[in-house]
Design a protein around this nucleic acid. Structure first.
Lengths: 219, 219
DNA sequence: ATACTTTTGTTGCTTTTGCAACATGTATTT
DNA sequence: AAATACATGTTGCAAAAGCAACAAAAGTAT
């Protein structure tokens, strides 16, 4: 129903006929945007992948979200007054559409420009996907311990790829920031899972974004 | 921008002219709905408040969400294959609109019925509010310890009411389920916060949904 | 008023997680 | 090839959180 195919290439060939929408490219590792209150920015990730990163007032890092093709992000979707610094960092080379979200009729052109017509049509699907992603994230964060967070996340990746073998979209260091746990405690738990035969790890050479292959055995 | 007032009474006087939409009343404590895969149900809470509750395979309870007026919920917004039981329970007497979400043009009437016209128009605002709520929830769940979860949540309630004095929408037992922590550990932390002067607690007699008033002193 | 249920409040003990430090291994840069 | 930076892997110890059990208070039903 909420089929990726429906929107997979929708905004891809977008040409900035509307003055209110801009398309930018970002190279791996660069800063895509920061969340600044009251600017109402919204973005669509056209290609590549990125992390939504938070630093709290103590400097603690958390990877709040893992952004992929067709995901929407931006400060307009995020609560204000959190006293945190949030920014989006490219994990791979990325293409991004960005614009100011006021409402769905913020195009001044008559008739509406191509982008705003398409956006208005696809907005429900984009939002529904985003909502399911956020609820999936909440499912993960509400697991009671590190082991269940790991297995829960591996289960998501496994289901998504329809295979018990898959690659992590994070380094292990970043996985700990994503699961919101201490890295060394997570490594300890990974060792236990390996000993008990729940996972196998294989290191892959020269892969820029992924560093492990997990062969997960779920019950 | 995403103003509650805009939609505050929009669906309130809805009359079921469309055969695909139904309005139901639920008394306090009753079951509003369960999340069953592939039914694509979506609901709007017209009045009252409710909890979205999850029981995992081990019987662990978590309050996934706290639903209030104009909030949307339903299995169509939630990931499938979680091996969990999810249901929505009325905290107060509730009125709920429910329908099947296929897409935004699932009304067979020509011209579209009043509900679907209004829903289509208000859908973006409903979804944006929902997204901000979910991101607020993620902010809370990614706090590193019980103390910060408590203070973070009190800060949200305080900001929402524009007052340092506010009531909890949960019993303390349910607050622990909501913050996803052990109740006794949470009580211990609440005692510390009280000793250190961060909060004051006052019990209120005969209040059905709230049991405490907290006078929170933030730095 | 009494019995019963639910919620609050507390504590000792155990388990889990976090912290700090460091060794090793793998990429990247010069 | 050497130097540097970053990621993985491991450990001892400390701190935090979970578990179990129970008492007291408040709310509800009879």
């Amino acid at each position: 129903m909420l089929n990726d195919v429906e929107i997979s290439n929708f905004f891809e060939n977008f040409n900035s006929s509307c003055s209110k929408v801009s398309k930018h490219s970002f190279s791996k590792g660069s800063l895509i945007t920061t969340y600044i209150e009251k600017r109402n920015q919204m973005c669509i990730l056209l290609s590549g992948s990125a992390n939504l990163i938070r630093y709290d007032f103590n400097g603690n890092k958390t990877i709040i979200g893992d952004l992929n093709k067709n995901d929407i992000f931006g400060e307009v979707l995020y609560p204000t007054n959190t006293n945190n610094e949030l920014f989006v960092e490219a994990k791979e080379d990325c293409e991004v559409l960005s614009f100011i979200y006021d409402n769905l009729v913020n195009c001044r052109d008559i008739p509406k420009c191509k982008f705003h017509r398409e956006f208005e049509e696809k907005f429900p699907i984009l939002m529904m996907n985003n909502t399911i992603n956020l609820n999936t994230r909440i499912e993960l964060l509400t697991k009671k311990n590190i082991r269940d967070k790991l297995l829960g996340y591996f289960n998501i990746l496994s289901t998504r790829k329809l295979s018990k073998t898959f690659m992590l979209p994070f380094t292990l260091t970043d996985l700990a920031y994503y699961l919101n746990v201490d890295r060394s405690a997570m490594m300890r738990e990974l060792s236990h899972l390996k000993e008990e035969g729940f996972i196998q790890k294989k290191r892959k050479k020269n892969n820029p974004t992924c560093c492990l292959i997990c062969r997960v055995i779920f019950n």
